[in-house]
Design a binder for these strands. Structure first.
Lengths: 233, 233
DNA sequence: TAGCAAATGAACGAATTCGTACAAACCGGT
DNA sequence: ACCGGTTTGTACGAATTCGTTCATTTGCTA
């Protein structure tokens, strides 16, 4: 809709009372909280407007309609999360330690990104109807698989990772554990108790996540080196 | 205001008889589809009524209100699923094989219970607010953990399972993999492609699920017996 | 300073949608 | 056959809630 932006406008710091970008960001932050909490159908535009510094009129001015706002929030949530993930530098570490870090980091990161997880939950309820309209989402997420693939290759060449493991399946596994731990905390906790969701248990589960992944990926030999054979505890 | 009498209907015995249970079941089946597809806020009572053999009036007669219907559907979904799971007989198998079956079965079972998974997704969006009102839900699900605990004990006594593994964490792991495979199929597929969701790949993932669990639970020794040391493929 | 276009605010309209009032039909026992 | 309570159908009311209309304010330029 809006054509190019001309940088000559409002560059003087502090003088611009109008700040469309800040308003947009404000709306999206409020909207993310609302949608993450109540879903797309459950989220109320009036509620979002009330919690915003601006008014409902602006939501429609900037985002067109409710779905447009939801889409913008969804895409932004993915962008933020993947940017944070990209800060992990695995190339400096040897494969085994790098994999351990990747698993533990992903687990911890998901744990701290509850509203992102909830947006993904909601989008899956909608069968990905809105994500499928996004053109950028592939580019945003592809690097994640690339990093896993590079790491896997290094480990295989070093003879410590099993050749059967594929990047996609490995990513799938790490995601599953890290995601489920957040997405299903409520129902799981209600049925089996909240024992797993104390702070100390969560930290332990982060280690267990890495442990599960390592035991799955490592060759029998490499695993033997890591965990000397002792059947008892 | 159509006063006339219609004695022409209901001649066949059993067709037009009163059958409250069948009506209830009919409503709940339709409601499960509707809620699983569109969520609680997104689900429409009128839509459910239209697809039912009976009318909207009956929904309120039997279930009180929309939330009551949702609760009934949710509880019933859990009941059905757990009943099916209980049909697995693990006691006849040796621990390792039993664990493999448990993992593979759970994976396959979740895969075939999409609407149940979606109900759980929706309930987690609501932070378990409705499940927490259910009194029976604990009793329905507790046996699941009991079976896992018994199996773990047997394996530990036989010296093939690691002592560090707890029933809750093991159940958590198997659930995570099996659940995520269904719940996130759409977003994961849109981002990374549908390669994992062909029939053959899904069957393979079922085996991988068991493999992941076994490698996590088995002692180094037991694992070595199962997978003779060979670093290459 | 005046004027113009973009940005904003408040009130409103229209369409859904939940839930109910009322009335009619039905079944089983007496 | 009649009568009681139970089961069902229709129409409607009330409350939400999305999105818009219209007027106003604001920043920038001539």
């Amino acid at each position: 809709m809006d054509g190019g932006k001309d940088g000559t406008r409002g560059d003087v710091p502090g003088t611009r009372k109008r700040d469309p970008e800040a308003v947009r960001a404000d709306i999206m932050a409020v909207a993310e909280a609302e949608f993450a909490k109540n879903g797309l159908s459950g989220g109320r535009i009036d509620e979002i407007a009330a919690k915003t510094r601006t008014s409902k009129r602006m939501i429609y001015y900037y985002f067109g309609d409710k779905n447009g706002l939801y889409r913008a929030v969804l895409e932004e949530a993915y962008r933020k999360v993947r940017l944070e993930e990209a800060e992990l530098h695995l190339d400096d570490l040897e494969p085994i330690e790098a994999l351990r870090q990747l698993a533990a980091f992903t687990f911890e990161h998901h744990r701290r990104s509850e509203s992102f997880i909830r947006m993904v939950m909601i989008e899956n309820i909608h069968s990905g109807a809105f994500l499928s309209q996004s053109t950028s989402i592939g580019d945003v997420n592809r690097p994640a698989i690339g990093r896993v693939a590079a790491l896997l290759d290094r480990g295989k060449k070093a003879g410590v990772f099993r050749h059967e493991i594929t990047p996609l399946t490995l990513h799938w596994l790490i995601s599953a554990i890290s995601y489920f731990n957040v997405s299903n905390r409520h129902t799981f906790g209600l049925i089996f108790g909240d024992a797993l969701w104390t702070e100390t248990e969560q930290v332990r589960l982060g280690s267990e996540c890495a442990e599960i992944v390592l035991r799955y990926v490592l060759t029998t030999d490499a695993l033997g080196d890591l965990h000397p054979s002792c059947a008892d505890a």
